[in-house]
Design a protein around this nucleic acid. Structure first.
Length: 225
DNA sequence: AACCAGGAATGTA
DNA sequence: TACATTCATGGT
């Protein structure tokens, strides 16, 4: 696993045992809503992003067509509660610009592209980086692209499995190689890590209420892969 | 009243 | 490649 000392499959089972199925990402029924959510939640709480999504829905602006046609000045007012509102408005606009200029405004067809092709397209859009691209691939397009976020890094660091500043690709590859290539597994695992990370692994010393058998930084999971 | 939240782009060395 | 800075609101 290229230097990453861990047992990711076992961790998945333990998280699943501890918390049960999460069946995650709100609004997963609508791919565009997932895309908007992925951008809006960048470095902000989901509750603030969700407020904006509700506001956009009430204003009938939760479609690529509407975002494309609405003036940035008007969008900014609605997006403000999510923070970085000018930047995030520009990001949503940039996605729509790409959608029309390169894919005739056909979101379904865009999301039907092969995983790596779609990932490249997404990464070429202003405001979409590794994590946002993978979240869109996984939860909007239903493709097996594992999402690495701040929680993933924090949890693995607290377990003592990584140093902490490994590259995004390195961590993504580790999960990808350790797991069966399955959308459900990827989505569930990411959700479990976030759920766990929201209440644990934040600070040293380790908490003694950790459901991972209270074994953070012990030898129980360690295994050179 | 600091500090943080499910990042990404940009600039510097 | 590796850091620092900027973007900004709302909750604790």
């Amino acid at each position: 696993m290229d230097g990453i000392d861990c047992n990711l499959r076992e961790l998945y089972q333990d998280l699943l045992r501890a918390y049960g199925r999460q069946d995650w990402w709100p609004g997963r029924e609508d791919p565009f809503e997932v895309i908007v959510g992925a951008v809006l939640t960048q470095r902000t709480t989901w509750t603030n992003a969700a407020r904006v999504i509700d506001a956009l829905r009430r204003a009938n602006l939760l479609t690529p067509e509407a975002i494309r046609q609405t003036e940035s000045r008007d969008l900014e007012i609605l997006i403000r509660p999510a923070g970085f509102y000018r930047a995030k408005t520009a990001k949503l606009k940039a996605f729509c610009t790409m959608l029309w200029r390169e894919h005739a405004g056909d979101l379904s067809r865009l999301l039907a592209l092969p995983l790596e092709d779609l990932r490249s397209v997404l990464l070429s859009v202003y405001g979409i980086g590794d994590e946002t691209a993978d979240a869109i691939l996984l939860y909007a397009a239903g493709k097996p692209s594992f999402v690495i976020d701040a929680y993933t890094r924090r949890v693995l660091t607290r377990l003592g499995w990584i140093e902490g500043r490994e590259s995004y690709q390195q961590l993504r590859t580790a999960f990808t190689q350790a797991l069966p290539t399955d959308v459900g597994t990827f989505a569930e695992y990411h959700a479990l890590i976030v759920h766990h990370g929201k209440s644990h692994c934040r600070s040293r010393p380790r908490c003694n209420t950790c459901p991972l058998l209270g074994m953070c930084e012990t030898a129980n999971y360690r295994e050179d892969v």
